[in-house]
Amino acid sequence: MIAPAIFLGMLAVVLVLPAAHWLASARWTVREPRAALVLWQALGLSSGLAAVGAVLMLGLSPLGSTVAEAASAWLAAIARGDLTAGLGPVHLLLVCLAVVLFSRLVGVLLLSLWRTARTRRRHREVVDLVGTPYERDRSATVLDHPHAAAYCLPGVRGRVVLTQGVMHLLDDAELDAVLAHEHAHLSERHDLVVLPFAAWTAALPWLPPVRAAGGAVGRLVEMVADDRACFGCERHVLAAALARLGSAARGSAPAGALGVAEAAVLDRVHRLLAPPRRTPWRRRTAYLAAAGMVALAMILPWVSLPL
Rank of each mutant, 00 (worst) to 15 (best):
L288Y: 05
A199E: 08
P62S: 05
L113R: 05
G64S: 12
R157S: 00
L56V: 02
A202H: 08
L220A: 15
L245A: 09
A50D: 14
D267I: 01
A149N: 04
G232L: 13
A50W: 15
A149Y: 00
L296G: 06
L238Y: 07
R138K: 10
H181M: 03
L238K: 04
R235S: 15
L296R: 08
V99W: 01
T132I: 12
A239N: 09
V55G: 00
R250C: 06
V52I: 12
C230A: 14
H147C: 04
R138V: 10
R138M: 09
V265A: 03
L245P: 07
R157W: 00
L220I: 07
H270A: 05
P154I: 00
R268P: 04
Y287F: 09
H181G: 01
S252I: 01
V224E: 14
L58G: 10
R219F: 08
E188R: 15
L186A: 02
D227K: 05
L105S: 01
D267F: 08
G59S: 02
G259D: 01
E234G: 11
E262D: 15
A140E: 04
L162V: 01
G81Y: 11
V260Y: 03
W114G: 04
A203S: 13
L58H: 13
H91G: 07
C96D: 07
T29S: 11
A19I: 02
T279R: 15
P254E: 01
L170M: 06
G107T: 02
P133V: 10
P275F: 04
L92S: 13
R271L: 02
H236S: 14
D176L: 07
L15S: 12
E32Q: 15
T116V: 04
G9Y: 15
I78D: 12
L288A: 14
R250N: 06
G155C: 05
F231I: 09
P18C: 08
T119Y: 02
L170T: 02
R159S: 02
T141Q: 13
V90F: 15
L192P: 01
P280S: 07
V55R: 01
A85S: 14
R159H: 03
P254W: 01
I299K: 02
A239H: 06
A51S: 14
L307W: 15
V14W: 13
G9H: 12
A295K: 03
V303F: 03
V194Y: 15
P209K: 11
L207E: 15
F197T: 06
R157P: 00
L169G: 10
G9F: 14
V16W: 13
V55P: 00
A253V: 01
A255P: 00
V95Q: 05
L258G: 01
L8K: 06
G88Y: 11
D172L: 13
A177D: 05
S25F: 13
A68C: 06
L175G: 05
A35L: 06
V90N: 10
E222P: 06
R283F: 09
P33L: 04
E234Q: 11
L93H: 08
G131S: 05
T119I: 03
L109S: 08
L238F: 08
W22L: 12
A297E: 06
L23N: 09
S72M: 08
V294S: 03
C230E: 14
I2M: 13
A51V: 13
H168T: 11
R189W: 12
P208G: 05
V221T: 11
R157L: 00
V217T: 04
I6K: 01
V210G: 03
R211I: 12
V108S: 03
W206A: 14
D176S: 08
E135G: 10
